[in-house]
């Protein structure tokens, strides 16, 4: 049973197609990278998968259940793209935000998760008082806190320093490999995807490519689309990552 099944999904805004006829599946334990240019519908696709937006057409299933009947939200950790819109006056501490929605507060897991993201000392600080990068780390900690079966990150590393970025990618890859956590990563950085993801979905309002990196690297269509040099660079990073990992 796939963790995510998207079938013929179309979403329109003001009568215009934002994404059209998107179909793909994600199996358990897969690290999927979703890439595409600005306005290609990446975030819209994620919001449709999570039921935040309702599609005009098509079907989404999570863990074998239709999105309209899906109730096991604790299986999902999500980091939205929008932290710039955070209300800086919001009176929530980092600890309150990271534990948001948890039925039982667990101080030990909280401390461990915050320390993993190097923000253990900020637990009692208000989220609005932190720098953008610290806020992003807090939001990552929130997504990781429940050790969910499915992690969805929308541009997660834009505000992170290189060290934290590396910690984040290594951690999510480790979770995918050892715990069988399914990871979906939306990013502009196709080089990063090459290093960490097993599968790739290239979106530009519709699916341009969906498959494994091996398929991507040997696809003449993708050579035509990206050009041989870009394709080689992406595939080289992927191969190097496999041999290191």
């Amino acid at each position: 049973m796939p963790i995510i099944r998207v079938d013929d999904l179309t979403f329109r805004y003001n009568g215009l197609d934002v994404i059209s006829n998107v179909t793909f599946e994600v199996e358990k334990g897969i690290y999927l990278g979703i890439v595409g240019p600005n306005g290609s519908g990446k975030s819209t696709l994620i919001k449709n998968i999570l039921g935040i937006l309702r599609p005009e057409q098509g079907r989404v299933e999570l863990f074998g259940e239709s999105i309209s009947h899906f109730r096991k939200w604790e299986k999902i950790g999500y980091l939205p793209q929008r932290l710039g819109a955070l209300n800086t006056h919001f009176p929530g501490t980092v600890a309150e935000i990271v534990q948001m929605g948890l039925p039982k507060k667990d101080p030990v897991t909280l401390r461990r998760t915050l320390e993993m993201m190097a923000i253990g000392h900020l637990a009692s600080r208000l989220i609005g008082e932190l720098s953008y990068g610290e806020q992003q780390r807090a939001m990552l900690a929130r997504a990781l806190m429940r050790r969910p079966d499915l992690l969805i990150f929308d541009e997660p590393t834009t505000a992170l320093d290189p060290e934290t970025r590396e910690i984040f990618y290594s951690l999510t890859r480790e979770m995918s490999r050892t715990d069988g956590t399914t990871v979906i990563l939306v990013t502009h950085d196709i080089g990063v995807i090459g290093q960490y993801a097993q599968n790739l979905l290239y979106l530009d309002k519709k699916v341009i490519f969906s498959g494994t990196f091996k398929d991507f690297c040997t696809s003449p269509d993708m050579t035509g689309f990206f050009g041989p040099i870009s394709q080689h660079l992406i595939c080289h990073q992927h191969d190097q990552s496999r041999s290191n990992g």
């Binding site: 919001k47 999570l50 039921g51 935040i52 109730r71 939200w73 604790e74 999902i76 999500y78 939205p80 929008r82 955070l86 209300n87 919001f90 929530g92 935000i97 948001m100 929605g101």
Partner: peptide, 11 residues
């Protein structure tokens, strides 16, 4: 109050 979309993603 913190974030409506995040709340929706939590069910």
């Amino acid at each position: 109050t913190f974030d409506q979309e995040l709340a929706q993603s939590m069910g």
